[in-house]
Every structure is written in structure tokens, then in C-alpha cells.
Design a protein around this nucleic acid. Structure first.
Lengths: 233, 233
DNA sequence: ATTATCTATAGATCTATAGATAATGC
DNA sequence: ATTATCTATAGATCTATAGATAATGC
């Protein structure tokens, strides 16, 4: 569907300096037990599995995708696949966690570029919505398949979701304490952070309708007005 | 999970007067071919199947529920089940369509009670959010399983979604033309209607987080402020 | 020797239907 | 005779693993 989405998982964000060790790209990799001794290999195979599975899940859904298809598409045997995961659900967890890591990376990066002044909320919203636009299929997948995860993994995926919403809370807090935004109650601010998160997701799960009427630029403009409560600008 | 949700499908909204015929409760019943001659029986069995399936799908998901479980829970044999539907996907369609019919009924009913004045938008939002609260599990199911429908049925389910959003558009239009709401562009108004719809759904798919911090009454109050852009009241 | 990978398959499903049986109405 | 229902099962999967084989490093 979305050619660009394929390459999303080909950013290789290594961090080899820290403690002199090859750092795990995704926390999920650490959480899944394996018999394989070489951690670098585990990481490489996990990425192969994720890249293969994410495309298959997007196009066929989790349940209609077979473990054999994933193995074939990742260029490993079905036997090897089960050296790196204990179950099909483990693969779904790897996929969900990788998607959230990518969304978080996008938002954090945007944040570091933001000017920090009056308009920085609009800037952050804009960059976040563009991340949602690029990762439309992936975010949709999380909405559809989180329920298929075992409770232990689902909990971790929901924690990821809370962490991303937390980024918007920090932005709102900073702007309020600097006087660039009117004072709000904690509760109200928290809910607004959730609203921003979800209105970004809305572009992914209502795209079948919205894209017929609005470009992503239209959408960002109108939603920014709506969120900031400024009917004219 | 939610005891009240069971009874939602036990409202028997018959309309026997029109044309002197026993009217179909759900349009979906008409769309699914069957060998059974008695339409009243088809409708009754469809309702049995829907009531059984909706609970199983909510607790186990569509893919983990077997057609045998549905048949058993609906108190008919697996053979009979397949006299009333052609496939498992047909059952999912019946379920999604019935849920939307129930949501629409709830919103329309609320609308007919609304005072129509200045505060009627807040009233409609309130009643709609209460419908989402009551039907939390059901709305979540639609988010998760719409993708599992064959294209033909998915299209119909998405049309239901558009129709429900359309109700909010009409309310907004009426309030603008009566001068009770500031003038907005058509595009902006349409997007606000979608936002209202989705912020209701948000209570269902973020309930795992929101319910820890807000009661449904808190949620309605804060979201109404957010939507109407009034930080104080 | 140790580590990683592969092939072949056990074991356990599940959907959908064919063909037999029961119930209903003339 | 017609309509509705049931039982039994064909046919087609799919996940996960056991046990054999290949590659690597001392």
C-alpha cells in the first residue's frame, strides 16, 4: 500500500557507544526469551522477523498471516523462527513495540527541533500528525491487533501508548509554566494530551473518509484551530 | 464484563404496522441470502445469532470464536446456523450492523429529547457519550474487527459510521443557521462532527487509562469544554 | 564442542456441507 | 409436499517441536 512505510524500519538507529555494548534497538527484544547466545544475532533476526511480519500483518491481518509466511518472508526456516520467538503472539509484540518506538522517535525528534516559543504547540502537533500520516498503516494495525496480545504484552504496549501521550503533557506543561498558554487544571491538561494523540490516530482510522475531503495539510490546519480553540487563523 | 451491554440487544423494536408486514429490524438481515422461506423466522434466528456472537466476539475476539460456539450459544445446530448465514463473516456483519443500529437509535432518541436551544449541542454530546459509555465493548469490537469483513460488508459498516457522524453535522448546521453557534466553513463543521464522534469512541478505546482518572461525568464535562472551546464552564 | 539452522511432521484444530430426519400445513 | 433442523464428517488448514544437519571457534 504505502511504499514509504516499508522503509520506516530500515532506519538503523544504533547506539554502540553506551557501555561499549551493542545496544538493543527495542526493549521487546530483551523481554523475549531465546536459546540463541549471540545477542547481536538475536537483534538482527528480530529485525528481519519484524520487517517481514509488519507488512504481512498490515495486508492480511494478524490471524490470517501464518508463521510459515513470516518465516519465508524473513528468509529463515520455520524452525529457526521458533528459536527467536516462543509463539506467534511474541511476533505481534515485537511488531507493536517497534512501531511505538518509531512513533516515539519521530515525535521526540520533532520536539528537539521545535522553537519552544508561543507556536511550539502547533509545531509539535504538526510534526506528530505528519508521523501519523507516514505511519498510518502501522498505527491502524496497533488499534486492530492490541487485543490479540497476551495480557503481559498488551500491558507493555499500553504503557508505550501512555508514554507517547506523556510527551504532549510535558509540552503543555512547559508552555503553561512559561505563560505561553492559559492556565489549566492538571486533569484538563492531561485530557487534552490524550485528545491530541487520538486526533492524530483519527487520521489513520478515518482516512478512508477524511482523505476524500482533506489533504493532510488541510487536516493539520483545521485540527490545530480546533485544538487551540481559535476559530479564525 | 458489562452486564448492561447484554440487554442492549433485547430491546425489541418492532414495527408491525407499516405495510402490514413484520418489518426487518436490521438492514443486514435483508442483505444476507438464505434458503429459509419464513422472513419472521429468519429475523428471529438472526437475532439469536447476533446475541450469542456479540458476547463471544467481545470476550474472545472474532477469530478465536468458532462457529460451533456461536451455534451452541444461540441454541441451534451448526447445520442450522449455516441455513441463516453463508459464512462466519456474515455473522460479523450482522453483529456490526446491529451495534450501529443501536448506537444510531440511542443518538436519535437523545436528539428528539433535546431542547433545541443554545445548549442543545452540549446535550447531544452528553447523550451520545453516554451511549458510548453503555456500549463501550461493542464500539471497541467494531474498531477491532471491521478489517475482518469482506469488502462488500466493510463498505456498509463504514456507511453506517458516516451516517452517525452525519447526525452531528445536522445538529451543528441547525445551531449555526439559528445563530446559536458562530459561523463555520462547511469543511470545518464536517471535521468537528467527526471529532465529536471519535472523542466519544475514545472513551471506549482508552477506557483502560481514562477510567482510572475520570468518571464518565468528568469526561463529558471536560470534553464538552474542549469541544466548545470554553475553558471556563 | 558449541552454536545455529533446517526438514519433516505430530497433533490439534475449524469451516462448511451432504444427506438424513423431524416438523408443519394442505 | 414443503420447510426447517440435525448429525456426522470431508477437506483443509496451522502452530510448534523433535531430531537431524550444518557452521563456527577453540
Amino acid at each position: 500500500m504505502n511504499e514509504r512505510s516499508v522503509s520506516i524500519f530500515h532506519h538503523k538507529v544504533y547506539n554502540e557507544e553506551r557501555f561499549g555494548v551493542y545496544m538493543e534497538q527495542y526493549p521487546a527484544t530483551k523481554a523475549i526469551p531465546t536459546q540463541i547466545k549471540n545477542p547481536e544475532l538475536v537483534q538482527r533476526r528480530h529485525r528481519q522477523i519484524i520487517d517481514a511480519a509488519v507488512q504481512l500483518f498490515i495486508h492480511q491481518g494478524f490471524h490470517k498471516t501464518t508463521t510459515r509466511q513470516i518465516a519465508r518472508s524473513a528468509s529463515i526456516s520455520i524452525g529457526s523462527l521458533y528459536e527467536y520467538v516462543a509463539s506467534k503472539e511474541d511476533i505481534l509484540f515485537l511488531v507493536c513495540d517497534a512501531i511505538h518506538a518509531e512513533v516515539e522517535r519521530g515525535v521526540t525528534e520533532a520536539l528537539s527541533r521545535a522553537s519552544g516559543g508561543r507556536h511550539s504547540l502547533a509545531e509539535v502537533i504538526r510534526e506528530y500528525f505528519l508521523v501519523c500520516h507516514r505511519m498510518s498503516d502501522h498505527i491502524l494495525l496497533i488499534y486492530q491487533e492490541t487485543q490479540s496480545l497476551p495480557p503481559q504484552w498488551r500491558k507493555k504496549v499500553l504503557e508505550n501508548e501512555v508514554r507517547i501521550t506523556g510527551i504532549f503533557m510535558e509540552v503543555l506543561e512547559a508552555l503553561i509554566s512559561s505563560g505561553d498558554l492559559p492556565r489549566l487544571t492538571e486533569r484538563s491538561m492531561e485530557l487534552i494530551a490524550h485528545n491530541i494523540t487520538v486526533l492524530g490516530h483519527m487520521w489513520t482510522f478515518r482516512r478512508w473518509f477524511l482523505a476524500r475531503h482533506y489533504s493532510i495539510e488541510d487536516y493539520i490546519e483545521l485540527q490545530t484551530e480546533f485544538i487551540l480553540g481559535i476559530p479564525g487563523t
